[in-house]
């Protein structure tokens, strides 16, 4: 494909490459892209154009999804700053956080066993607060160009997301 998609997602949507993106501009550009390149606009076109439209819109959807998701966005920000994190390998070595991880896991198991909906609700609330804190931490470290520590925050976020996912799945 000869199309220049080398620009990063922020450039693609003409946004400043920072964590806090202008949501309104993002949405507007996204819809404009969709209205121009969506395969529905090419049902009567040649196969070649269909293929290109499919590739372009897949790319745009991926970019939009990334910029709309705090976790993906943080990873992506680090990546374009030369600090790539392997999504499959997000083990954390900080002993304090490991301790904290274990405590939350134990709590989760207890709640699952008790099936107490109030406990569950509070736990979800707590995880949400941790997530928020973690995000703030990331933003600060990232803005100060301390990428190593920022990446720690991303890994922590991954943990909170997986524990949140687990409790939401538990019915």
């Amino acid at each position: 494909m000869a199309i220049d998609f080398n620009q990063n997602y922020f450039q693609l949507f003409e946004l400043e490459s920072s964590f806090d993106v202008n949501q309104e501009n993002l949405e507007k550009k996204y819809l404009n892209f969709q209205k121009t390149f969506h395969p529905d606009k090419f049902v009567n076109a040649s196969d070649q154009e269909k293929r290109i439209s499919l590739q372009i819109i897949s790319y745009i959807n991926e970019a939009y999804e990334t910029l709309n998701n705090d976790y993906l966005k943080s990873m992506y920000l680090l990546k374009i700053n030369g600090y790539e994190i392997d999504d499959q390998n997000t083990t954390i070595s900080d002993p304090d956080f490991l301790m904290h991880q274990m405590e939350l896991r134990e709590e989760l198991e207890e709640i699952k066993e008790s099936q107490n909906s109030n406990l569950k609700k509070n736990f979800i609330k707590k995880i949400n607060e941790h997530k928020k804190e973690c995000l703030e931490g990331f933003k600060k470290k990232f803005n100060d160009n301390i990428f190593e520590e920022a990446s720690q925050k991303v890994k922590e976020m991954k943990f909170y997301l997986s524990i949140e996912n687990e409790i939401l799945k538990d019915n």
Binding site: P39, L54, Q55, I57, S58, Y59, N61, E62, Y64, E65
Partner: peptide, 8 residues
């Protein structure tokens, strides 16, 4: 729930 078309 990913918007399609999508690739990965």
């Amino acid at each position: 729930n990913s918007t399609i078309p999508v690739s990965s």
